[in-house]
C-alpha cells in the first residue's frame, strides 16, 4: 500500500474481503444488488453468491406481476444462488389463486433443484393458497440441511380452521432433512 491518499483508497476497495462486499450487498434491496453484476467482471456473480436472500414485494410490485411470476422469480433466484443458507420470503400478494403457478411448481422443470446449504427459511404472510403450499412442499423436499422453517400465517385473512388444515398438510410433506423443524 502507498501513502498517496487517492491511491490508498483504490487499494482499500479492491482489497475489501468478499465478506464485506457480501454484507453490503445483503443490506441492499435485491434489484440494487442484481444491478452490481454490470460493474465489472469481478462483480458479475457477487450478488448470486450471497448466503442470505430476502424476497419481498419490492421484487414485483412495480411490474404488477401475478403470483405465478412471483413464484417463478423466486425459484429462479433460489436455483441460481448456490450458497444460500437463509431465505426470507414475505408478502405474497392477495390475488386469487393462479392455476399456472401450481402447474409450474409441479412441473419436472424443478426436479433437479437442490438446496444443499439452506438451513433457515422464513415465510411470512402465508394464507394457505395452493402455490404457497406447493412452494413449502418443494422447499422441504429439496433442502437436506434444513434446520428450521418458520411459517408466519397471515392471521388477519385466514380462519383457525384453515390454519389447522395447513398444519396438517405440511406435516404430511416429505422432508429431505431429518432434523428439519417446521414452526408456525
Amino acid at each position: 500500500m502507498t501513502e498517496v491518499p487517492g491511491g490508498r483508497t483504490c487499494d482499500i476497495i479492491s482489497n475489501l474481503p468478499g465478506d464485506v462486499i457480501n454484507v453490503i450487498l445483503m443490506c441492499l434491496p435485491l434489484q440494487d444488488a442484481v444491478r452490481t453484476s454490470v460493474l465489472s467482471r469481478k462483480w458479475r456473480y457477487n450478488w448470486a453468491k450471497l448466503p442470505k436472500l430476502t424476497l419481498d414485494h419490492t421484487l414485483w410490485k412495480e411490474t404488477k406481476q401475478n403470483i405465478f411470476h412471483e413464484v417463478c422469480c423466486m425459484l429462479c433466484l433460489i436455483r441460481s444462488s448456490p450458497n444460500l443458507e437463509e431465505i426470507e420470503i414475505k408478502a405474497f400478494n392477495d390475488e386469487e389463486e393462479d392455476l399456472c403457478a401450481q402447474e409450474f411448481l409441479e412441473a419436472q422443470y424443478y426436479a433437479d433443484i437442490k438446496l444443499d446449504r439452506l438451513r433457515k427459511i422464513k415465510l411470512k404472510q402465508i394464507s394457505g393458497k395452493m402455490p404457497e403450499m406447493k412452494l413449502i412442499k418443494l422447499l422441504l423436499a429439496k433442502s437436506p440441511m434444513l434446520e428450521t422453517m418458520l411459517i408466519e400465517p397471515c392471521t388477519k385473512h385466514i380462519s383457525t380452521q384453515i390454519l389447522i388444515d395447513m398444519m396438517k398438510q405440511v406435516a404430511k410433506y416429505e422432508r429431505a432433512s431429518p432434523r428439519a423443524e417446521v414452526i408456525f
Binding site: 483508497t9 476497495i13 479492491s14 441492499l28 440494487d32 454490470v38 460493474l39 465489472s40
Partner: peptide, 19 residues
C-alpha cells in the same frame, strides 16, 4: 454504504467504488 448506493446508476456506483 448500502443505503447510500441504493437507487444509484451503475456508472455512479463504479465511480464511488473506483471500479
Amino acid at each position: 454504504i448500502a443505503d447510500r448506493i441504493k437507487d444509484k446508476s451503475p456508472e455512479a456506483v463504479r465511480k464511488i467504488f473506483h471500479i
